[in-house]
Simulated scan of single mutants.
Amino acid sequence: MTASRRTPKPTRRRVASLALLAALAGCAAPATPAPAPPARPPGVATTPTTDATGGVCPVRSSLPPDPTPPRRILDRGELVAGVDPSDATMSHWDASTQRFEGFNIELMLAVARALWPADDPRNRLTFKAVPPGQGAFTMLDKGEIDVVATSLTASCERARRVLFSNDYLDSGQTVLVRKRADGTPEFAGMEQLGGRRVCAATNTTSLAMIAGYRTTGGLRPVPVHAPHPVDCLVMLRQGQVDGVSTDDNILLGFARMTPDTTLVTEAPRSERRSCAYHRDENCTWFTDEPHAFAFRLTDGRDLVAFVNHVLAQPRTAVVWQQAHDRWLAGHRDRGMPSPGPVTTVWPPPDPAPATPRPAD
C-alpha cells in the first residue's frame, strides 16, 4: 500500500482556508494601513494560551545516536509521521502529485530509507495531518503517530512532554505583513506593531512570544490566536489583523503563496534580536527556534537515537542541502546544524546562552 493511499487529505476546514487564500490572491493590498476590525472567524481569540515559556528556552541537546533500527518499527513495516498539510515549505499536500512534499518530508524519507534500504521509502511512510504546536502531542501520546515532523520548536517546556531529536534546522520568529502599493511593508518590524493585532496559532511558542514582546515605546502587540497559521494568513489578507508571526521558514512559504504580503525588514530592538544562528546582518528574528522531531516520552528513546544517527550521516547532509535549496531558498540559517551535545537524562538541563555552531 502506498503512502498516498494511507494518507488522509487535509481537513475540510483547512481546504476552505486555502481556497479562500487562492481567491484573495488577486486582490490588491490596501494602499495605507488601517486599524484592524475585530477578529471574528470561529476559533479566534485574544486570550493567551499555553506554552508560555517555551520560546525563551531552546533545547539542542538530544540522546546519543544509535544505528540500531527500532525492532517494533521494523516489525510493523511502516513509520507514521505527523505533518502539517498546509505548510508550503516543510510538509504541504501536493494536489498534482497526490502526495506530501517539502523539507521535512525529504528528511522523513531519509529516515525511512535507512530503516528499509531495499524499499521505496514512500511505501514505508504513512503521513497523518496533525494540528500545529502542542496539538500534535495528543496524537503522539495516543500512539496514532510515531513522530511529529511539523515545523516544531524544541523548547524546555515541551521537553517535559516529548523526546526531541537533535536540532535539524535553525530558525527564528519574525512577522509577515501586507505590502503597500509601492511594495514596501505596511509595518517595518515588531517595533511598529505595538498596539496592533498580530496573529499566531493557538498552543505555539510563537503566540507566547508575541504576548511577551514590548516595544521600545512600551507598547505590546495585541496577540490574536487562531487554530492554524493559515487561518492567520487569511485574516491578514482580509484586514482583520496587521501581522502573522511564526517561524521564518513557514512565513517564507506564506509570502510565496500571497505576493501582496512580505516579511518585515527591520530588526527588533537590540536586546530582543536572536541572530546567533542567522547567517547575515539582515536579521529580523526575535526568538531562537531550533527545530526538532518529537517522539513519545514513554517509549520513544530507541527511535530518537536512530533518527539522530540518520541525521549525523554524510548522505543525510546531502539530502538536507538539496531539500534546503529546493524548499527553503532565502532562509538565512547558517546551514545544517552540527550534532550538539548529548544527554542521558530527560528533560535535559536548561541550555547555556546560544552560541553559533558551524555548519557542516
Results as ranks from 00 to 15, higher is better:
residue 317 A to G: 11
residue 71 R to C: 01
residue 208 A to V: 02
residue 204 T to W: 06
residue 227 P to R: 11
residue 252 L to S: 04
residue 143 G to E: 00
residue 337 P to S: 06
residue 322 Q to L: 12
residue 239 G to R: 01
residue 245 S to C: 05
residue 164 F to N: 06
residue 244 V to D: 06
residue 96 S to A: 12
residue 15 V to W: 09
residue 299 D to M: 02
residue 267 A to P: 03
residue 215 T to W: 01
residue 4 S to P: 03
residue 314 P to V: 02
residue 97 T to K: 11
residue 137 F to H: 09
residue 330 G to W: 00
residue 211 A to W: 01
residue 170 D to P: 08
residue 56 V to K: 15
residue 85 P to A: 11
residue 4 S to L: 12
residue 102 G to H: 00
residue 28 A to F: 06
residue 83 V to E: 04
residue 84 D to W: 06
residue 356 P to A: 15
residue 84 D to M: 14
residue 188 A to G: 07
residue 278 H to Q: 11
residue 17 S to E: 11
residue 263 L to H: 03
residue 209 M to W: 04
residue 212 G to D: 09
residue 191 E to R: 05
residue 28 A to I: 08
residue 184 T to I: 04
residue 159 A to Y: 01
residue 276 A to Y: 08
residue 308 N to L: 04
residue 211 A to V: 00
residue 169 L to T: 08
residue 344 T to W: 07
residue 173 Q to M: 14
residue 256 R to G: 02
residue 28 A to G: 03
residue 267 A to I: 02
residue 334 R to P: 03
residue 141 D to H: 15
residue 132 P to R: 05
residue 121 P to R: 03
residue 329 A to G: 03
residue 353 P to A: 07
residue 39 A to E: 13
residue 337 P to V: 00
residue 211 A to P: 00
residue 11 T to K: 07
residue 318 V to D: 07
residue 124 R to N: 08
residue 57 C to R: 05
residue 339 P to Q: 10
residue 297 L to I: 09
residue 135 G to Y: 04
residue 199 C to R: 09
residue 24 L to K: 04
residue 224 V to K: 03
residue 184 T to W: 10
residue 133 G to T: 04
residue 101 E to T: 12
residue 43 G to E: 01
residue 30 P to F: 09
residue 288 D to I: 12
residue 133 G to S: 03
residue 259 P to F: 09
residue 358 P to E: 10
residue 56 V to A: 12
residue 45 A to L: 14
residue 324 H to C: 07
residue 290 P to K: 12
residue 153 T to S: 12
residue 163 L to D: 08
residue 291 H to Q: 13
residue 96 S to E: 13
residue 215 T to N: 07
residue 174 T to R: 03
residue 133 G to P: 01
residue 307 V to R: 02
residue 68 T to H: 08
residue 317 A to I: 02
residue 73 I to V: 11
residue 14 R to Y: 06
residue 34 A to I: 03
residue 190 M to V: 05
residue 342 V to W: 05
residue 12 R to D: 15
residue 282 N to C: 14
residue 124 R to K: 04
residue 305 A to H: 00
residue 106 E to D: 15
residue 58 P to S: 07
residue 95 A to N: 10
residue 50 T to G: 14
residue 331 H to R: 05
residue 351 P to R: 12
residue 100 F to H: 14
residue 41 P to V: 15
residue 200 A to P: 10
residue 32 T to N: 13
residue 90 M to A: 14
residue 173 Q to W: 02
residue 328 L to V: 05
residue 144 E to S: 14
residue 332 R to C: 09
residue 135 G to V: 08
residue 107 L to A: 12
residue 47 T to V: 15
residue 173 Q to V: 13
residue 51 D to T: 13
residue 307 V to T: 10
residue 76 R to C: 08
residue 292 A to Y: 02
residue 60 R to I: 15
residue 66 D to V: 04
residue 178 R to G: 12
residue 215 T to D: 07
residue 143 G to A: 08
residue 168 Y to N: 05
residue 94 D to E: 11
residue 17 S to Q: 15
residue 36 A to H: 02
residue 135 G to K: 09
residue 86 S to K: 06
residue 305 A to Y: 00
residue 84 D to T: 13
residue 47 T to E: 13
residue 347 P to Y: 00
residue 41 P to E: 11
residue 199 C to Y: 07
residue 147 V to I: 09
residue 358 P to M: 12
residue 112 A to N: 00
residue 356 P to C: 15
residue 113 R to N: 06
residue 48 P to Q: 04
residue 131 P to C: 05
residue 99 R to T: 13
residue 95 A to P: 02
residue 213 Y to L: 07
